[in-house]
Design a protein around this nucleic acid. Structure first.
Lengths: 338, 338
DNA sequence: CTGTTAGCGCCTTCAA
DNA sequence: TTGAAGGCGCTAACAG
């Protein structure tokens, strides 16, 4: 491997000038030609490790997520990585497997690794580990999930407003007894806040009998949905606060031969058929009404925001918070009640 | 940030001894205690950039794949990253978006980055860019897809044998007119080789009218499947050489109200319902018969193999090739023909 | 087993 | 604008 010294010898130009040239600084035309020729001849490549030693920059960022096999992380990460790559950054993938302690651990490893920045979809209810990054001058962009009490750059969606609006639409369509099955994450809580305020805003009761919390969405939601459906004088519509609960609804529907919307109406936060490779779900009619997140935009916006922060630096840090808009897709899965 | 010099001063032990200690080499008990105390007091962390400069090791590997939003890469990558992480390596994700030239480009970027190794699911029909890695001493593990004429470590599945066996089973069940819709990748070709040899081995014709190639599986397979089904004296069973074609079959089935297996029998290479978050598909009965790949094992085996190669070094390189076994799941989607 | 001594390849003052 | 010189933090050869 040729080093800058080889280029110095080959070109007759000092390595400091070469180094400057490599950084795009001004060099006399004469030297430029000499240097370029030598570089080409030797097939010289800048050694990023050596340059990083002095500057402490690695052109590497860490993407810390709960589970890459989850629905929405692949498209988000794909777009993020692609954008960062186009801007000269490599992306280290760090899957903490929905394990809070591992999330903290992975963040520390990335700090030690000297990444230039981090994008994080946190599952934590405190921000100590994140503040540790910021304190060391490593910017963090929170993705999808905020942490209360933590001042930090972030890219999220309008969970509250979207849910509020969607429920309002259903009320307009005549629904009065509206139930919900929800998870426990920050996003679920935001969505349920929208749900409840929509009801209250229209003077409707928030009937807690109609609201179920499930901790492990992937397994438990089916049962809860059956319970709601089975109630005498139960809800006419069920709001599923995330896609796993929506999948529970889908399973109940398929297994029990539920007629939608005759038997019950559904709204799901996140649209299964909009995820890559899940489009065939749309063939099961009617599709569930859904609130759709802009997945690729989440990836792109967080990449842009991180790059911007990298430009700005961490001095007098003023968090930038981006909230993206979701789209509501109303389908015949919501019955019009006269 | 404390450096090793600080630890030297604090502990009174020379930095070379400290460095050795940090690498797990033998040190007197007395020095060990001194060093550990100083490290703890100063909260010293090894700077990987600096160590990399001398050792030329970055403890980083590149994972180069065609599309992270594809079905099987998330679980594979998850397992790979997790295993590598447990062994002190970070994984750079590099999605080349099914773009051959970008694949080559990404590999070069990773070489320049000085990664210690690469795992690659290639879409290339030649190995020039891979040989460039090997020549520079960067080991590559080919994942899922081999490249003819290239001697390289690899982890694949038994595409040929699995297809051969599956088709044989169908022949045993009485099928004589067997069609196929297949893609164009190396894996598809292997699978079709198994398909054809199974037929020939039993003295059956390989009816080329029953065999369709589709280039863009995601869009075109539906139509091809309809054509096969619509033929007078057409095949009684269709083999779909990959999951995208299987999805085409699923769509035709749902859209056209196809009865399985009364109207036609199906076998698909890869089982949709076995992918994470796709389990609800199994509720559509009968499930397609399928050949199942051990996704997590692909990730784990390639990680293990890469680590092993990192241990062995690249001197007198003898490629190691691992072929994992798939499992055949026979369901009522294949009709018994008397 | 330890400390001394050179670098690893690049960047960054500094004086010219 | 340029070159000389020193240093980033750690590793590795060497002699002891």
């Amino acid at each position: 491997m040729a080093t800058i010294i080889d280029v110095e010898n080959e070109s007759g130009v000092s390595k400091s000038t070469i180094s400057r040239f490599l950084q795009g600084k001004r060099v006399t035309e004469e030297n430029r030609v000499k240097i370029e020729k030598a570089i080409k001849k030797l097939d010289y490549r800048l050694n990023p490790i050596a340059s990083g030693l002095k500057s402490s920059k690695t052109k590497t960022i860490g993407a810390v997520i709960p589970d890459i096999t989850d629905y929405f992380f692949p498209p988000i990460i794909k777009e993020f990585e692609s954008y960062m790559s186009d801007h000269g950054y490599h992306t280290i993938l760090s899957d903490y497997g929905n394990d809070k302690s591992r999330e903290i651990n992975q963040l520390e490893l990335l700090i030690d690794k000297k990444v230039d920045g981090i994008v994080l979809a946190s599952d934590s209810d405190h921000g100590t580990h994140i503040e540790a990054c910021l304190r060391r001058g490593i910017p963090v962009v929170l993705l999808d999930r905020l942490i209360s009490g933590l001042e930090c750059d972030s890219v999220t969606v309008d969970n509250y407003q979207a849910s509020f609006n969607a429920i309002n639409r259903c009320i307009n369509m005549g629904h009065r007894n509206i139930g919900a099955v929800h998870g426990t994450h920050h996003t679920d809580r935001e969505r349920m806040r929208g749900f409840k305020e929509a009801l209250m805003g229209r003077g409707l009761d928030v009937n807690t009998d109609f609201i179920c919390e499930v901790k492990l969405e992937k397994g438990m939601s089916e049962q809860k949905i059956r319970e709601l459906i089975g109630m005498a004088n139960g809800p006419s519509l069920i709001f599923c606060s995330n896609i796993y609960i929506g999948n529970g609804a889908l399973k109940v529907r398929l297994k029990d031969g539920l007629r939608i919307p005759e038997d019950i109406s559904f709204i799901v936060f996140d649209d299964l058929s909009s995820f890559p490779n899940h489009d065939y779900i749309s063939l099961i009619k009617p599709e569930f009404s859904s609130i759709n997140q802009p997945l690729y935009d989440l990836g792109r916006s967080s990449a842009k925001l991180l790059l911007e922060r990298l430009e700005l630096g961490m001095d007098d840090y003023k968090p930038m918070n981006i909230e993206l808009k979701t789209a509501f897709k109303l389908t015949p899965s919501v019955k019009e009640i006269k």
